[in-house]
């Protein structure tokens, strides 16, 4: 045991020393006075944070597909698949739209609520397939591209990124009805090439939506053993859903 430990320590020390020697052997000719010492910027008549940008968007069209996750959806399937298209009319602004289709079925929690023991020993059964589920959304989306930057991951990898705010308005369709809604969001694009980017969107949707529950004394119920409600019988209220979308965009 001790022998192994000493052996390990010896190897570690040898590697450490060799590393030191290896680095010492390389003379990096970057004199101290040439290295960055100030955090201030040079003064120009017309200051601009970046020139000769790698990613130019003005006048270009961008299309993309994405996977969305409704992070605060308790009942129905949280997954969505979407398609988006945008036109960039300047380096700061873009307008476009997206269509996203919700996957059918219930969420993990929705499945768990199918049969729940109550405090009095009986079983509460909730069949959410009786409730109207969200099916799709279609919205016009405006993007304000506030920041353009770059990131380096290694000595040889550097990529550009763009942070933007988004404001969308359109319809959220449920099984029985389409509700007008808006979505406010924040997103970021990581440009892998000048055309191809990874897009991440965090959006909050706000719209009216049916409440998929009934009080216990109601004449209709989600309980499969009782009378099923018609979709019109569900109350509605303003609903907020937070969505995270991750997708790939192509610009041309």
């Amino acid at each position: 045991m001790l022998k192994n430990a000493l052996k390990g320590l010896g190897l570690f020390l040898a590697a450490f020393l060799l590393q030191k020697v290896a680095f010492a052997a390389e003379v990096v000719e970057l004199p101290q006075e040439e290295l960055a010492q100030e955090s201030v910027y040079p003064v120009f008549d017309k200051p601009a944070s970046v020139k000769n940008r790698n990613i130019l968007t003005t006048g270009k069209v961008e299309i993309g597909g994405y996977y969305g996750n409704a992070m605060t959806e308790p009942i129905f399937n949280v997954s969505k698949l979407g398609f988006a298209a945008y036109y960039h009319w300047s380096e700061e602004h873009a307008i476009g739209g997206f269509f996203e289709s919700n996957l059918s079925g219930l969420s993990k929690y929705g499945e768990q609520l199918k049969s729940v023991p109550s405090s009095n020993g009986s079983t509460i059964r909730l069949d959410f397939t009786r409730a109207p589920a969200p099916q799709s959304s279609i919205m016009v989306d405006y993007n304000f591209k506030a920041f353009y930057g770059k990131m380096s991951l290694s000595k040889s990898i550097v990529f550009n990124l763009s942070t933007f705010g988004s404001l969308a308005a359109g319809l959220v369709k449920y099984t029985h009805k389409a509700y007008p809604g808006i979505a406010l969001g924040l997103g970021q694009k990581y440009y892998m090439t000048k055309q191809l980017s990874l897009r991440v969107d965090l959006r909050m949707f706000m719209h009216n939506a049916p409440i998929p529950f009934f009080p216990g004394n109601a004449t209709v119920s989600l309980d499969p053993t009782r009378t099923a409600p018609s979709h019109d019988q569900f109350d509605e209220r303003l609903t907020y859903t937070t969505n995270l979308g991750v997708g790939v965009n192509y610009m041309f």
Binding site: E26, V50, R53, K155, V158, N160
Partner: peptide, 25 residues
Amino acid sequence: DDKIDRTFYVQNGYEYYPFQGEYWL
């Protein structure tokens, strides 16, 4: 600096990445 990885610079308080055509203030 062919044989020096980026940690060398990071340890010295400097980031290092290649120039890819765009200029930053």
